[in-house]
Design a protein around this nucleic acid. Structure first.
Length: 265
DNA sequence: AGTACCACCTGACGGC
DNA sequence: TGCCGTCAGGTGGTAC
């Protein structure tokens, strides 16, 4: 099952571009209801029906489908959401929660077994990002901004990496990978990180997320040096003799290699 | 300000 | 076999 963090949502963005751009919207439906936030179905229909999707943007874990009348259908995938494009009713996903139907008979659906995905309507991406207090996108943030915003916090580094207000797009899985490759223990206190630690972490954010996108988020395709394919308690650490440890940190089960990742405290 | 915990939500899985 | 508790994790809320 796909956990939608930045690379996964980037795949959804590309999928939407390759399937759904410049098609006239005929109908929208929410078969199970209660997926809309801050907007009603009639507002959504008013904004979208008879329009086309002309752009697909992403900020962190949010996907923005821009329409020809300057509105943005904003999708969040929760922890199990994904996009499916199909024509025949029998090809509809089994957990179809939000469906856009185009005049050519095709559909784009948000498939979401655990019902944690959300759909909103926005007037601009910038205003949406500001309203939800999202930090810069993890692949766009500069090192200066990263060092400053992380540096002025206290607490555990893992919590900061996963905090969407600091940097948008990193969740539990990729924060574990970034910290593993940075050789930093997830419980390390931010105030104890060196300048070198910060820079290392910043570079690993970029390289880890990019590598996953290059692999189309298929973990089996990642280099042998990655932790993600071995993200099980007791598994062998990649590249060093040792076992993967699991511990609840910042409210999430965290996997790390204690021999590689030393605690800064 | 940071942390811990809960709720939402369902499918998978292990224990008995 | 089948029931049941637990876990998975993004977001957003509350209490301390």
């Amino acid at each position: 099952m796909v956990m939608p963090e930045l690379p996964e949502v980037e795949m959804f963005r590309r999928y939407a571009v390759s399937t759904s751009l410049h098609k006239r919207i005929k109908e929208i439906e929410a078969p199970r209801g209660s997926i809309l936030i801050d907007a009603t179905m009639s507002e959504l229909r008013e904004a979208l029906l008879d329009r086309e999707i002309i752009s697909a943007g992403r900020h962190g874990k949010y996907l923005f489908l821009g329409t020809s009348n300057n509105k943005y259908l904003t999708l969040h995938f929760g922890m199990t959401g994904s996009l499916r494009y199909f024509k025949l009713p029998e090809s509809a996903p089994s957990h179809d929660r939000f469906r856009i139907s185009f005049v050519d008979g095709y559909h784009l659906s948000l498939n979401d077994p655990r019902l944690l995905g959300r759909v909103r309507l926005a007037d601009s991406v910038e205003r949406f990002v500001a309203r939800h207090h999202l930090g810069p996108d993890a692949l766009s943030i500069t090192y200066e901004d990263f060092r400053r915003t992380v540096g002025e916090r206290r607490g555990m580094v893992k919590a900061a990496l996963m905090n969407q207000k600091i940097v948008a797009g990193i969740g539990n899985l990729y924060s574990d990978e970034i910290l593993f490759q940075s050789r930093i223990h997830p419980k390390s206190q931010i105030g104890k990180l060196t300048e070198q630690d910060m820079y290392e972490m910043y570079q690993c954010i970029r390289s880890v997320l990019s590598a996953s996108i290059d692999c189309r988020t298929n973990f089996a395709c990642l280099p042998d040096s990655f932790l993600l394919p071995h993200r099980r308690k007791g598994a062998e650490c990649p590249g060093i003799e040792g076992r993967v440890a699991a511990e609840k940190i910042a409210g999430r089960t965290s996997y790390f290699c204690p021999r590689v990742q030393k605690l800064r405290s």
